[in-house]
Nucleic acid binder design. Structure first.
Lengths: 155, 155
DNA sequence: CTATTACCGACAACGACGTTGTCTATCTTA
DNA sequence: TAAGATAGACAACGTCGTTGTCGGTAATAG
């Protein structure tokens, strides 16, 4: 026997739903030639955006230190997803930009997420899925990038 | 401008919903005398259960190594949430049990989660919330403990 | 024009938390 | 009774976050 009230289920289901989508995304990304993409990378590359950014800026966007952002950028650079170049107008800055390979991951992710969403719609119905999204929008914050994921779950 | 298809929003909203609930849970737990409880602890203590368990068993339940489970148990022990005792019938085993202090966290968590759920119901409606839970149940796995959280999000 | 201040990126040291590997003690089984 | 399996402790290591420090460049105040 264990303590098991109704309120415990809601956060768990939300997390499991998230996990299912992310896991299936990355299984499919691996099949499509991106076996080294990790859940974090997608968020980071979204945060980098099309215009590019710097380590300090990225750290602020993601809510981590500039050093942590720098290390993540190094990883993405090693995987070929981003590249760095000196800013000619401010030689202190190094601008991080998505490579075509990085844009490819984002584009594929977008299509895969749309497919996964369609599969959910097929299971629970299109209207119910739209309701679900609308309801979640009402109870969650608007700022989408400050996930503060790193170490947040740690013991 | 950034790549921003409809499919990207669903996983994000699910995660943010989860985050909102967990963050508010721990803010309230801190107010109620449990400032050191971390998100992971609740799941682990749920996994330990009323009858208790061992490090090896716990590791299997949570999907981590027995060493990692042992370290988590040490942390919980230091916080006074669990205690260990030798199994008289198998002196190799050390049984981990919740202390009354540990049971207290779980009981308070249960009430807080119920309150948070009620607040969601007040915002989106009770029926819509029940629909949301029912729909999520349809698209998520049944095994609830294998979160495989540790390091899963890492870059 | 110059001196101070602010900012960027790199490097080092550290802590938290996961992993694998090894070891001893104990239980189980052939 | 001997061999194998299992529990838990200990150590070493890797990853990823943190803070602190530093040199180089930009912006700004006097």
């Amino acid at each position: 026997m264990s303590i098991d009230p109704p309120g415990f289920e809601l956060p768990l289901r939300l997390f499991l739903g998230f996990r299912v989508l992310i896991d299936e995304l990355h299984a499919e990304l691996a099949r499509q030639g991106h076996p080294h993409a990790r859940p974090m990378h997608g968020f980071v590359m979204q945060a980098i955006g099309i215009e590019g950014t710097t380590a300090v800026e990225l750290g602020r966007t993601l809510g981590v230190s500039k050093q942590a952002a720098g290390k993540t950028i190094e990883t993405l650079e090693r995987l070929g997803y981003v590249e760095r170049a000196r800013d000619p107008r401010d030689t202190r800055r190094k601008i991080v930009r998505l490579t075509p390979w990085g844009v490819d991951v984002l584009a594929r992710s977008a299509r895969i997420f749309d497919d996964l969403r369609a599969r959910w719609a097929a299971v629970i119905g299109d209207e119910r899925l739209r309701d679900l999204e609308a309801d979640l929008r009402k109870v969650t914050p608007q700022d989408v990038f400050r996930l503060d994921v790193p170490g947040w779950f740690g013991a």
